[in-house]
């Protein structure tokens, strides 16, 4: 009994610790600009200090913000799809096939992921300007992919190794080509892994700030985290905190949607019943 209470208290503490900033941003986004400038320390807006949905409407009506959201969704989705696709094929090869340099591929992938993002921004900036990728969608998609691929490959390799090899052999005996066996048997079974990798990739791409701010200059490719920092409003010396808060909340929505959608697919024990355990 004591144990249970202890667990509950601990759980509550961690929840408060994690969610307080989020709650505060939401609270901020409903306060009017004047109330914040005048000082409004309470969690709930004081009388007359509430702004209702006005902040959200203002943010949404901002052309720059809408473009940034679009950029972020587009870039993140494309990077995720491509990264997961390539990682799936690579991981399958690593898990199933014997070839020279297998270890090297895995280690190299890990080494790439260990590079600090900041150290690459400078060279990339120069290269992209020369090649003409600066301030374009591919200019962001490519670095996002190269940073998320290693993680995706490692995750998926682990998943593929879990799938009994007999399933694939059974499919081949049943008349499938290697490709058919992969597509009809292995990929559906690796779905939890694929979606895990997809979520991780999407997170990285969506939350990235360094690349977003350094490799873009206009709203043609600027993603939301970078756009928020440029979001100064009418008065550059008086940043619209409540509008920013509303923008931040809106920027969080796609992440929540993606997680909810994919989470349903991450069903543990999908392979149960394939073979006698």
């Amino acid at each position: 009994m004591n144990r249970k209470i202890g667990t509950a208290v601990g759980f509550l503490l961690i929840m408060v610790w994690c969610l307080l900033p989020v709650a505060w941003i939401i609270s901020l986004s409903f306060k009017s600009q004047e109330a914040i400038t005048n000082g409004s320390p309470g969690f709930l807006p004081v009388d007359g200090g509430g702004a209702g949905w006005q902040n959200y409407i203002d943010v949404w009506n901002n052309e720059q913000f809408r473009r940034a959201i679009l950029n972020s969704i587009g870039i993140s989705l494309i990077a995720t799809v491509l990264s997961v696709l390539i990682a799936t094929l690579a991981a399958y090869a690593i898990a199933r096939l014997e070839f020279r340099g297998k270890k090297f591929v895995l280690t190299a992938a890990l080494a790439i992921a260990m590079f600090p993002v900041v150290s690459l921004v400078g060279p990339l900036f120069d290269m992209w300007r020369t090649i003409g990728l600066y301030d374009t969608w591919p200019g962001l998609i490519i670095p996002y992919m190269s940073f998320t691929l290693p993680l995706a490959i490692w995750t998926l390799t682990a998943f593929f190794r879990e799938i009994p090899w007999e399933l694939e052999q059974a499919a081949q005996v049943d008349g499938a080509t290697s490709w058919q066996a992969f597509r009809k048997v292995i990929v559906p079974l690796a779905a939890p892994g694929v979606f895990t990798a997809a979520i991780l990739t999407f997170f990285f791409a969506w939350n990235d700030f360094v690349f977003g701010i350094s490799l873009t200059s206009t709203e043609t490719a600027r993603p939301i985290p970078a756009a928020l920092s440029f979001f100064v409003g009418a008065d550059p010396f008086n940043r619209p905190a409540s509008l920013l808060a509303a923008g931040a909340v809106i920027a969080t929505v796609p992440i929540i949607v993606i997680v909810l959608v994919f989470q349903r697919k991450i069903v543990a024990g999908l392979t149960s019943g394939a073979v006698k355990g």
Partner: peptide, 19 residues
């Protein structure tokens, strides 16, 4: 290849497609 031999096999651990 196995698919060209037209044989049917029952595996020790059944190898059913769980999905």
């Amino acid at each position: 290849a196995p698919k060209e031999r037209n044989l049917a096999m029952v595996f020790q651990n059944y190898a059913l497609y769980p999905h």
